[in-house]
């Protein structure tokens, strides 16, 4: 039943903006403390005009995309504008804003809405602003499946590239913290993670390649047998050596965790606890972190994400051997690029 992905993407650039994370190399080990109010310095990340009136999540997305595009040596702009694309995953980038818009209407009337931010009640506006930033006219696509959207973005982007709809694509996830009345605790996430990708067959395999597949497990029928049938297909006959699993405590998440128990001792399983309201950033953040890790040999790993609402997706990564001391050092090592045949 698992839907396999067509195509595979080569990852040539990484970018991340999130509290407690200084760069791709720190994406697997974020500082756990509550973020400081000024964790993101927009004027430093996005110098220049045209950014003041856009919502914070849009700024995270633009800043992370700048980093990924720059990390790839600005190869993005070498593609014709009609061949550039973006797939943006989000669940809650506009959730607090939507609540604010609605309260303004209730309490003051629609005429009091801000004309600059109210269009962002359409969640695709974040991707649209990204397209304006990088002159992307191939397409931009927004995917909003709870929790798994970031992994699905890889799946959709690789399929679209395989179909010839673009030759370079930014695969992104972006979230904004929920309001205090929506989420009194610290369960929500803020930030953005971006992969700069090209077709695996012809692109620059600098960090490695990725592909994704997905399936559905009805939360009301999330038995161990049902989960095993789906997760066994998702992981494949020869599961990657390391699986980072982003799971909440829902019936679906618990069933996935129990299935992963069977791999203990055979594979390195890293459970990353999350909540439904965290959104879709963390799974793509793990993808960025795994690509940024340095290995002496070609390494297979995976990120699994499951939502309380039944979607399950797995990104399979093949990480290119890199012996450079840091991501920054790799930036200057064009000769280290590995091109696929």
């Amino acid at each position: 039943m698992v839907t396999l992905s067509t195509g595979e993407l080569a990852v040539a650039g990484l970018g991340i903006i999130a509290p407690g994370i200084s760069g791709p190399g720190g994406a697997l080990t974020p500082v756990a403390e509550a973020p400081a109010p000024d964790w993101f310095q927009a004027e430093l990340a996005l110098p220049g005009r045209g950014y003041r009136r856009i919502p914070p999540a849009c700024k995270y997305l633009l800043a992370a995309s700048r980093l990924a595009v720059s990390d790839a040596g600005n190869r993005f702009s070498e593609n014709e504008r009609d061949r550039r694309a973006a797939v943006v995953a989000t669940n809650n980038a506009g959730a607090a804003l939507l609540q604010e818009i609605d309260y303004t209407i209730i309490l003051k009337g629609a005429e009091e809405l801000s004309p600059s931010t109210s269009p962002f009640m359409a969640m695709s506006l974040f991707a649209s602003r990204l397209s304006m930033e990088h002159d992307i006219t191939g397409f931009n696509l927004t995917v909003n499946s709870p929790v798994t959207a970031g992994i699905e973005a890889i799946q959709i982007a690789s399929r679209a590239v395989a179909a010839g709809r673009a030759s370079a694509v930014l695969v992104c996830a972006v979230e904004e913290a929920l309001s205090l009345t929506q989420s009194p605790g610290c369960g929500s996430q803020a930030g953005s993670a971006v992969l700069y990708c090209e077709p695996a067959a012809t692109g620059t395999v600098r960090y490695g390649t990725c592909k994704a597949r997905s399936a559905f497990l009805n939360p009301a029928e999330a038995s161990d047998d049902a989960a095993a049938a789906i997760l066994g297909q998702l992981a494949g006959g020869n599961p990657p050596g390391r699986i980072d699993a982003v799971l909440d405590d829902s019936a679906v998440g618990a069933a996935a965790a129990r299935w992963l128990d069977h791999l203990t001792g055979q594979r390195d399983v890293v459970i990353v606890p999350t909540s439904a309201q965290a959104g879709c950033l963390v799974p793509l953040q793990r993808v960025v972190g795994l690509f940024a890790e340095k290995h002496a040999t070609l390494t297979r790993c995976a990120v699994l994400a499951a939502s309380a609402f039944g979607t399950i997706a797995l990104a399979e990564l093949t990480v290119t051997p890199r012996l450079a001391a840091s991501i920054a050092a790799v930036n200057s090592m064009e000769e280290a690029d590995v091109r696929s045949p």
Binding site: T3, S124, L141, N144, S145, E152, Q155, A215, F216, N218
Partner: peptide
């Protein structure tokens, strides 16, 4: 009763 891929697209 689907157990295949489930995707939600948000292009307004």
């Amino acid at each position: 009763g689907s157990r295949a891929a489930v995707t939600s697209v948000g292009n307004a």
